[in-house]
């Protein structure tokens, strides 16, 4: 049986910054439980001797020369912003402390 509880779903939604209604928490708990039970089978074959693959085609040392290139203008940057003051993006008050 899965370890997905409504409390865990709420915690994950908070980490992912997604508001959920109580109904959504309920349905996601069931759905995620079923999915997790199903996908957990990866650990059956993932033995310690098998290396992990993070990139399908192995490449290394892909660099960009340190030369200024394409940028966007302030106007372009702000054009799609929900709110701005003419040069900066505007957001409502931030809870808590500086990061």
């Amino acid at each position: 049986m899965s370890e997905i509880t409504p409390e865990l779903v709420e915690h994950l939604a908070n980490l992912a910054r997604i508001g959920l209604t109580p109904e959504e928490v309920q349905s996601l708990t069931g759905e995620l439980g079923a999915i997790v039970d199903s996908v957990a089978k990866v650990s059956e074959v993932a033995t310690p001797d098998v290396p992990a693959t993070s990139h399908p085609i192995p490449l290394v040392n892909v660099f960009r020369p340190d030369v200024p290139g394409e940028t966007v203008t302030t106007e372009q940057a702000l054009a799609m912003a929900p709110e701005h003051d003419g040069s900066r993006f505007k957001v409502s008050a931030i809870l808590g402390e500086e990061q």
């Binding site: 892909v62 960009r64 940028t71 966007v72 302030t74 940057a77 040069s87 900066r88 993006f89």
Partner: peptide, 19 residues
Amino acid sequence: PNTLIAPVDLGLPGSLPTV
């Protein structure tokens, strides 16, 4: 402000980082 920015610095959809 906001004059030294490329798409990836704004996290624009589709943008990609290069090292």
